[in-house]
Design a protein around this nucleic acid. Structure first.
Lengths: 260, 260
DNA sequence: GGTAACGACG
DNA sequence: CGTCGTTACC
């Protein structure tokens, strides 16, 4: 099974690129982040015409996630609150979580808050959000131990996931508290699929639009696939496909594909 | 001599199309309207690299005209006021007029105000602007009887210049007062080059972006070449080149080329 | 429908 | 740098 994650930074702006990529890179599920469109504006037809089944969870201007599945998904759920019944419903105001089951595997697609800068209001929200994510996954694990979680985590777990031109010290996406919050989540039983196959630095999935970061390969590896043991054991590859980032008017992120 | 007029609706957005067109359609002078950029932002190099001499007169966001000449122009003048010394300088706040001499022929490039709707403040401005234009041309004619005036006139002089789906009655760009104001100007000795060669309707130079007007050929002929007798007599052709309007992300206007 | 400017966000 | 939302203009 092939699962791809791609923060497309607006599905409407990137539609042609996404459709082209998907045509040449068929996957079982394509997990999109930052679709940046309300559900009525999502280009469902483009994916249906390719034979895919889109499941969308969007909002105006910001955030927004989607699952583009080769076959109908089971038990699709949008947001945290449909899984965590007692959770404050404001946690679902930002559309950052969508999940569904394919061939017995639960796919969880996340757009983790960026956090703006260390110590900011948004940073605190990011940390709290990761705590909620932990509870959400605990709940999901109760009914299904086979989870493939992916998305834009907006966190580089290790220093080798970041180009060395960056002053990592207290940098957003690299601060200790963020990393620890993510590690706490992963301690539920998730392992990084990419690191099963590759121990090298210099592998990035995101390059800032500013300062010509891509041309200078000043990137970050912040888009991940995290797998629970039953899935991790059978994982065969995890590849960052840099090609889409080279196109005209690209997303700042590029797809990452895991096969298991 | 070949003179082209083209309202490009932003030279920065349309640069590639304009350069491609000019490469395949060399002219002596290309007259641009709605460049929509201040002079520091005008892509001079792109034209210079093609061997042309650009003369620009732009402003922020709106209006803006330019002469792109195959050879250096003489006696280039920007705006009304440099010709009409006693004119209120506010007439040059909107950049709509540029002129220069090539091979003894004065080229006048205009972006006539649109006028918004009949009876509006902007409509009155359009009528007053055309009166000033008349005085401007009178002054120019004193020193040179050979004038080739072109541009986006935002006026369809005859009903056959407008598709018949439009209710012409008091429509902006077709009202009696506008037509009369333009006719008063033309009475100084200008004749419509296009009508020397073509008496048919259905020939348009502008199609509204809205309502799929181009696909349905619901256009207007509002981009004109008006020639004084010495030039008009030797005119050999006047062609509307519809091709650029068929491209992706086109201007709403297409080039009109006169040869004399 | 498609320009541009501006401010917010990343 | 490059999204979006807004406003203004055509």
């Amino acid at each position: 099974m092939k699962i791809a994650t791609w923060n497309v930074n607006s599905i409407r702006t990137r539609l042609e690129q996404v459709i082209n990529w998907l045509s040449e890179n068929p996957v079982d599920v394509l997990c999109l982040q930052e679709t940046k469109v309300i559900d009525q504006g999502f280009p469902l037809n483009s994916f249906e015409n390719l034979g895919y089944h889109p499941y969308i969870y969007g909002q105006k201007a910001y955030n927004g996630v989607a699952l583009i599945s080769s076959q109908p998904l089971e038990d699709v759920s949008m947001g945290f609150c449909s899984v965590l019944k007692d959770l404050d419903p404001t946690w679902d105001e930002q559309k950052r979580v969508i999940s569904g089951v394919i061939d017995g595997v639960r796919i969880v697609n996340l757009y983790v808050p960026n956090g703006s800068s260390v110590g900011s209001e948004k940073y605190e929200y990011k940390l709290r959000w990761l705590k909620v994510l932990g509870k959400y996954l605990q709940q999901l694990l109760l009914s299904n131990p086979a989870i493939s979680m992916c998305g834009d985590f907006n966190i580089a777990l290790e220093d080798i996931d970041i180009n060395d031109k960056v002053k990592i010290e207290n940098h957003i996406m690299a601060s200790d508290a963020e990393r620890q919050a993510l590690k706490d989540v992963l301690d539920l039983g998730f392992a990084d699929a990419f690191r099963k196959f590759n121990q090298e630095g210099g592998n990035y999935s995101w390059w800032d639009y500013r300062t010509a970061a891509f041309k200078r390969n000043l990137g970050w590896r912040i888009d991940h696939h995290y797998l629970t043991p039953v899935i991790y054991e059978r994982a065969q590859s995890c590849i960052i496909d840099v090609a889409p980032r080279k196109l005209e008017k690209p997303s700042d992120h590029t797809p990452v594909v895991v096969e298991f």
